[in-house]
Design a protein around this nucleic acid. Structure first.
Lengths: 343, 343
DNA sequence: GTGAAAGCGCTAACAC
DNA sequence: GTGTTAGCGCTTTCAC
């Protein structure tokens, strides 16, 4: 193997017969006009000849800009977050920014080390898509260190940090309205983890809409630690055992939980949607191909990513951190897992 | 907003009453032994007090190591690649490395700009998980520039670049063996894109095993441009129209295509598995909850990521690039979408 | 065991 | 218009 030294601006300068700073100017679109056209052409020719790639690390050190955004997500295996990061990536790309994606696995310790890593890498901004109740201090420290931070998808209250998220209150309400309008009165929730505001909002939105219709689901809410099919199945079993008459409508806080619920129903020879209607959340891939195809709430996930990126970029440019909340609207996707209750 | 200056080694040095180079030594585990214990404690105290975070950018510039690996994937929305990057991330983390993930969307141009971006960021190594036939030149350039490169998941022949991948030849063979052993003789393939070696291998593995059993599927192979359910549905329709007697067994090159195939069968009132067996590939999330639950081939995706990361790290350390191919073994997951053919 | 000096590759400020 | 100089924050010689 040849000992490799990457070509630098100095090398290009030597070939073009100019000073390194002229190389720098010629190659930066913003300052190219400062250079005589003829000189610039010579530099570009030399750069191409040597296959020169400016060192963004060195440039970043000098400019105090890394053109990098740190993104914290709970888990890339979750298709919702894959879509979210897709939205971020597409927006950042247009601005010549790159994302560093870190998975927290819903663990505060990983959130914390992730945050530390990102500040050591001097990212220009951070999008926290994995925020949970326990992360408050860490987020406050980030803000205090002067780095622009945005909470997206998941968020907590009482921080001076912009929020870009789905309107989960509305999402829960949509689910309730749908089931009520079908004629359901005995309703239950398979509730996501209690320390994630997203799920609390979904729960409140659902509960509130029920209350306004004179329905109470207070005894019929079961909380999951992890929003998996397996855990939902257990919760659903317990729910069925605990009540004389099973509910006729179930709101599961995500699609995997809805799937688990339907399986638990099958175990008890209850059919979906004939005996019990089930509605999920997220509209993840393949849900339309399930039996029955899942009725669910779809949120504008990629759009949330896009707007979150936009927001953090504007904070990097503009001075002030607008402590705003941007709510994007979810919508109901009706498929086969919900139907009117049996007479 | 306060104008923020992040604290530097110089600041810490001032507080601890030492020289910046002593700060550097004290905080690097490898060189901490060069510093008197008492001094080191003073430095650490000062660093904590000031909440000092060493600047990895500056450190990288000096050491000519960014502790960053670039990873090119076709699409993070594809759960297989989410799992793959998970495997990479977990391994890199242990080595204090960070990944930069870039999505190519299966477009050569994006592969190329991605590669350029990664070299400008001076990543210490690259894992190409998105390799397609057209990317040969770009990969060769990367190698020539002296940067360690590994092809994982997807790969092409004839490059002096290590390969870490699923044994797709074996995967295709597993699918064939399963269908043959159930008693199927009329078989067809819904084949993934022709410019991705992965799919060619699956096709050859399937075809070869059939041939050895005296079965020919040559007329019964339909090629997709994109491996989606929608496209598979169309291909399957065409396939059914083109033949008098439909095949009794279908090998779809991924799970989405298998789902599309099953839907096309339903349109023609053909049932799966009673009339036609369908086997997929990947074992993506929710496949076990489909109706029927999908029989599929599972590959050790996270493990491929882990080994790819391991390989690129060893190339960064050790000098030579071992032009090896590491094949990991897939396995058959039998569920409900395959059964013996009807008499 | 610690300090001083130099330099990684780039670019901003200044000089001419 | 282009060259010169200096410095981003760190680490690595080399002194002492």
């Amino acid at each position: 193997m040849t000992a490799h030294r990457t070509t630098t601006a100095k090398d290009v300068a030597a070939v073009a017969g100019v000073h390194p700073s002229t190389v720098s100017r010629s190659l930066d679109p913003l300052r190219a006009s400062l250079v005589r056209e003829e000189t610039r052409q010579r530099v570009i020719a030399a750069a191409n000849e040597l296959n020169y790639r400016p060192d963004l690390i060195a440039s970043g050190l000098r400019r105090q800009r890394t053109h990098t955004i740190g993104v914290l997500v709970p888990d890339l295996g979750n298709p919702v977050f894959a879509e979210f990061t897709g939205g971020i990536n597409r927006r950042l790309e247009r601005a010549d920014y790159t994302a560093i994606l870190l998975e927290t696995q819903n663990q505060h310790e990983r959130f914390q080390t992730g945050a530390r890593l990102l500040s050591e890498r001097r990212v220009d901004g951070i999008i926290s898509g994995a925020t949970r109740a326990g992360d408050r201090r860490t987020l406050r420290q980030l803000v205090q260190s002067g780095i622009p931070v945005v909470m997206a998808m998941r968020w907590i209250r009482g921080l001076e940090i912009p929020i870009v998220a789905n309107d989960d209150l509305r999402g829960g309400a949509l689910a309730a309205e749908h089931l009520i309008s079908l004629g359901h009165r005995r309703l239950a929730q398979l509730h996501g983890a209690d320390d994630i505001e997203t799920f609390r909002e979904r729960g409140i939105g659902f509960h509130g809409t029920l209350a306004r219709a004179g329905i109470d689901d207070a005894d019929q809410v079961r909380y999951a630690k992890l929003q998996t099919a397996a855990e939902a199945r257990k919760l659903m079993r317990a729910l069925l055992q605990a009540c004389d008459e099973p509910p006729t409508g179930i709101f599961a806080h995500n699609d995997l939980m809805a799937v688990g619920a339907i399986e638990a129903l099958k175990e008890q020879s209850l059919r979906c949607p004939e005996d019990v209607s089930v509605i999920g959340f997220n509209d993840m891939p393949l849900t339309e191909h399930l039996a029955p195809p899942l009725t669910t709430i779809r949120m504008p996930t990629a759009e949330i990513g896009r707007v979150a990126a936009e927001t953090v970029l504007s904070m990097i440019d503009g001075a002030s951190s607008p402590a705003v909340t941007i709510s994007l609207q979810p919508r109901l996707v009706v498929r086969g897992s919900t139907a009117p209750p049996r007479r």
